[in-house]
Design a protein around this nucleic acid. Sequence first.
DNA 1: GCTAATTATGCAATCGAATGCACAAGCCGG
DNA 2: CCGGCTTGTGCATTCGATTGCATAATTAGC
Lengths: 342, 342
Amino acid sequence: MAGRERTKRDVTLKQVAKAAGVHSSTASRALDPSKRHMLGTEVVERVTAAATSLGYRRNSLAASLRTQRSRLVGVLLPDLTNSVFSPILGGVTEALGEADYSVVIADVGTAGEHQLRLFNELLARRVDGLILATASRSDPLVERTLESGVPTVLVNRAESGNRVGSVVSDDSEGMRLAVEHLIDLGHREIAHIAGPPHLSTGFLRRRGLEKSLSAHGLLPAATTIAGAFSREEGRLACLALLDKAPKATAIVAANDLLAMGAYEALRERGLNCPGDISIVGHNDMPLVDMIAPPLTTVRIRHRTMGREAARLLLCQIEDADTPVQSIVLMPELIVRESTRRL
Amino acid sequence: MAGRERTKRDVTLKQVAKAAGVHSSTASRALDPSKRHMLGTEVVERVTAAATSLGYRRNSLAASLRTQRSRLVGVLLPDLTNSVFSPILGGVTEALGEADYSVVIADVGTAGEHQLRLFNELLARRVDGLILATASRSDPLVERTLESGVPTVLVNRAESGNRVGSVVSDDSEGMRLAVEHLIDLGHREIAHIAGPPHLSTGFLRRRGLEKSLSAHGLLPAATTIAGAFSREEGRLACLALLDKAPKATAIVAANDLLAMGAYEALRERGLNCPGDISIVGHNDMPLVDMIAPPLTTVRIRHRTMGREAARLLLCQIEDADTPVQSIVLMPELIVRESTRRL
DNA sequence: GCTAATTATGCAATCGAATGCACAAGCCGG
DNA sequence: CCGGCTTGTGCATTCGATTGCATAATTAGC
């Protein structure tokens, strides 16, 4: 008596069919828009009526088993909480939802072995496709997806091999924007807080910065590599930077979180931004326009990135012969008050 | 020739069984830790060896169909991008992942009818449970979950009926902390930017504020209701507030985003925070410690909230007779520089 | 008015794994 | 040395929907 009855079995297609006085196969066709036309209109109506009155809900598990398509896409994320990845995920689910796909998420955190487990779990669920936001520049997981033959798209981070589709921001261009801006303002001693080099974002942004600098006959005043894209690592890196290059007048951080850490480091050292040192970030994450001073940064359309990744993946799912595509999104410089004319 | 062969069929249990020279049912048992003991050790080894060498991965679709358990939980979110919900989701996936469940997400956005579609989609996938972060104070969806008999837990927002489990922050206590703090600082003219009253957070925080105020024989200097928990609505509400209660010395915003809007409004009016007006937020979202001035706010452990919701849900899934539980998490006041002694 | 073509529906197999039941082999005690 | 018990494995059904093929009913054509 106590407790909700769990035994309330779902209505099956067969029950609907019986209620409508037809065979289950007929009911199946009646409820499938693309097959409805094979049936008499009167029958279709009778079946749909029976279905709604019984509260029928088709069991996608069974359907997927039969059709070999789950309409499920797996998304592997390094960190759900990170303001880079949540809008990406938002864009992905939005675009996928419009195409009637659902999204299973796997938030990796850090552990590497853990990541493989999650990957296997997704494949066991027979996802129709995979979106990886976790890829390192040479990622064993990419190998695995290739083996398994699951359509896959990389997002935000690319891998070196270019063996699967990807959607990324043009990191080189982003750094060019940042560097040109600083040079316009008269800066020459420009230092860099780099991101982890095993990630394409860390690696490419550093290379982009160096390239843009050398186009002006300059070298970085100094570079420190942060252990992770985090505030604390940014603080540490900036502290190191201030020691290595005391003459630097500007710092380009590989992303906003690192820039935030740099803010803290500056404050600790009694330095003023932008008075003593200008800072440029990357991503334009929420609220960086409200901090003191409002951060000059390179804006990336993360949501769009997610949407495009979903679009690419859908192409691959629908047509296995789709060639491997890579989309590169253009970033935009947002000038605020953390950079000033020298 | 061109294009990846999609036809690479997955290895089935039957194939593994044949390779190991046993029947598929035996293979099934050999691969199930809880049934392994029924078998001879030698057979178990032969099967597991065959499984790994063939690269077998069990088809959870088929397994779920047979066992009537999908080990899948659906999470309905109002906005993935919102810094309140991403840590909640993070906590949920973390805790659920530890119990070998996967998470399907449905990001509602706004549209109400859309929400019902997503809900139906989740049920069609036969999720074992549901976590709703979208609930309004009287939500038709709660009705639906009750009907369907799917174990459900509400998170962050509760509904009035208390008919399903929930995990929320003690909004009343949060507001008490904020009010006591301001009163300690000598404030008497305290205004409120309230959240949408159809959400428990909006409603309960307002009521909590009024209760705490009246415990000191005070009334709100004024209250404006924001149309949504957004920066822009906060700005608008604050502007209105400044007109309604020009003598107010402090504003309590129903959340940080509204507080951010208030900052902008103050700036527009040439007012200084905390010089002219003190402001308290709610949530302690990322970066509010970096803005100018650093925001005094009520911290909520969103990740914990997610974890607890997952825990509650697992109890309900595992034992249908688990009574409806409601967990209320204690918030914490974080004093920074947006509030000052009068 | 009879065959051919068409349309509408039913039948039965299938997807892959799990599991109740049957059965065989081995063991024990009396 | 045999009946009963335990242990290990196989058989066949089941989960719920989809779909190729067969067939019944209807229409068209001549």
